[in-house]
Design a protein around this nucleic acid. Structure first.
Length: 428
RNA sequence: UCCUCAGUAGCUCAAUUGGCAGAGCAUCCGGCUGUUAACCGGAGGGUUGUAGGUUCGAGUCCUACCUGAGGAGCCA
């Protein structure tokens, strides 16, 4: 029993491969089965003279995605896709598949999304999800090797973390609970316990956003570092993104080739990243002729314009406080701006990281909670963190799906996760 | 919530000025001893998203609704 990925080392041997029929071609007394097993694709040649007549008939009736166990001798052959093929001596048929909806021809997005559970079998979707896996592994390795402790935060939460955003509401026995939109507040508690911590899990936003960058359920990795200030966290973000990209470029070259990603553009992604203050960004956009004023937030056009000025991610820091969450530390030099940073991915992929320094003074934080009309009782524990050995601390969150979309060069984040939850689509 | 666009065979799409509902792929049957999204011949497959309206006649024009896609706002 072997996997197709190791077939090159089995030339001359008789082996058995288990998989599914990806495609089939025949020429009279000769049939070519393209067998896929998840690790690769292998051309299996069935000669009429090498198998029994009933078996040859049965093989002739195999449909796309039928499950088979094939046994035969492995041979190198230039005519075979991939350079190797198997001369079948036996084909065991587990199931003849019903007519498969996804044919080797073109399909539209709505149809493919309706069959997402089957679409995952295509080589393109498998390549993307393998890259996603590599990215997630790189995130874990990055923090694990730097002394961070993974401390996951709850999915059921008692109240809004940031008030402004729409939350998914759910019953929690006799109470109301909300699905988390960020682990950050809890991370601040764990960072005070561990010094450096991170969480990695799903987050939920009930916003009626219907664009190529939005999912209702997405995964976020969020590091939090005690005693870190804005510059520290910007350096961390820069190193973090660079390492992820380089690990994919080195470790997933085959998959990047499958999806025809321009790897050259990824190889540029190394420190230092350009740093731009919000003030400088506004000036740059105004020079480009965009009608934006100091105090406005960036929309899609602005983010695209900014990111297209650079060949690597750009870090925009010190936004006006009123554009940012209540917990952002004001800049002591200019209290109207916050010590925060957004990282915009190149090629128009938009914001992939948002973060900054958190307010560590108790009274200022209490004022902000009141100004934002947040339920103070729900934040009692959060204020406690400012009573018992409060220190400056910073962190950020990175949206995995947007990073996957950027690294893979995809049109839409829906292909970056196996089963995307989108506005008006929760099937399959 | 708002704006734009699109719904015709299982899928991808045609159908001229409003005048017979079509093709390729998939499926089924037949042919081919090296196929490369194989090819060749044949067959089955339709409430043209739904409901109204205009007209001698509507896939085509009008109205409403449904579904989907792209975008805005908001966000990672």
């Amino acid at each position: 029993m072997v996997y197709i990925e190791e077939i090159a080392s089995r030339v001359g041997q008789e082996v058995t491969v288990r998989g599914w029929i990806y495609n089939k071609r025949s020429s009279g007394k000769l049939q070519f089965l393209m067998v896929r097993d998840g690790t690769g694709t292998l051309q299996v040649v069935v000669f009429q003279k090498n198998v029994s007549a009933p078996l040859f008939q049965a093989v002739d009736r195999l449909t796309q995605e039928s499950s088979v166990v094939v046994t035969g001798r492995v041979r190198a052959d230039e005519r075979a896709p991939g350079g190797y093929e198997m001369d079948a001596s036996d084909v065991q048929i587990l199931q003849v598949a019903e007519p498969y909806p996804i044919t080797p021809k073109d399909h539209g997005v709505p149809f493919l999304m309706e069959h997402r559970h089957l679409w995952l079998r295509s080589s393109r979707q498998r390549a993307i999800l393998r890259i996603r896996h590599e990215i997630i592994k790189a995130c874990r390795d990055f923090y694990d090797s730097r002394g961070f402790t993974l401390v996951d935060t709850p999915i059921f939460t008692p109240a809004a973390c940031e008030g402004t955003t729409t939350l998914f509401e759910t019953r929690y026995f006799d109470d109301t609970a909300y699905l988390t939109q960020s682990g950050q507040l809890y991370n601040e508690a764990t960072a005070a316990a561990f010094g450096k911590s991170y969480c990695f899990g799903p987050t939920f936003r009930a916003e009626k956003s219907k664009t190529r960058r939005h999912l209702m359920e997405f995964w976020m990795v969020e590091p939090e570092v005690s005693y870190a200030e804005l510059d520290d966290i910007m350096a961390l973000a820069e190193e973090f993104i660079s390492e992820i990209v380089q690990k994919v470029v080195v470790g997933r070259r085959t998959e990047l080739a499958t999806i025809e990603r321009d790897v050259g553009r990824l190889e540029n992604v190394r420190p230092p990243f350009p740093r731009l203050s919000y003030d400088e960004a506004i000036r740059l956009l105004q020079e480009k002729g965009l009608p934006i004023q100091w105090g406005d937030d960036f929309g899609g056009d602005e983010e695209t314009q900014l990111s297209q000025q650079f060949d690597r991610p750009v870090m925009v820091h010190r936004y006006p406080s009123k554009l940012k969450a209540f917990y952002m530390q004001p800049d002591p030099q200019r209290p109207e701006v916050a010590l925060c940073v957004d990282v915009l991915a190149p090629e128009g992929y938009g914001e992939i990281i948002g973060g900054g320094e958190r307010i560590h003074g108790h009274d200022l934080l209490l004022n902000r909670i009141q100004e934002h009309k947040l339920p103070a009782e729900a934040f009692r524990w959060y204020l406690d963190l400012r009573k018992y050995g409060s220190v400056p601390h910073s962190g950020f969150g990175m949206g995995i799906e947007r990073v996957v979309a950027w690294i893979c060069g995809l049109e839409h984040v829906r292909e970056t996760i196996a089963f995307p939850r989108m506005l008006y689509r929760i099937y399959p």
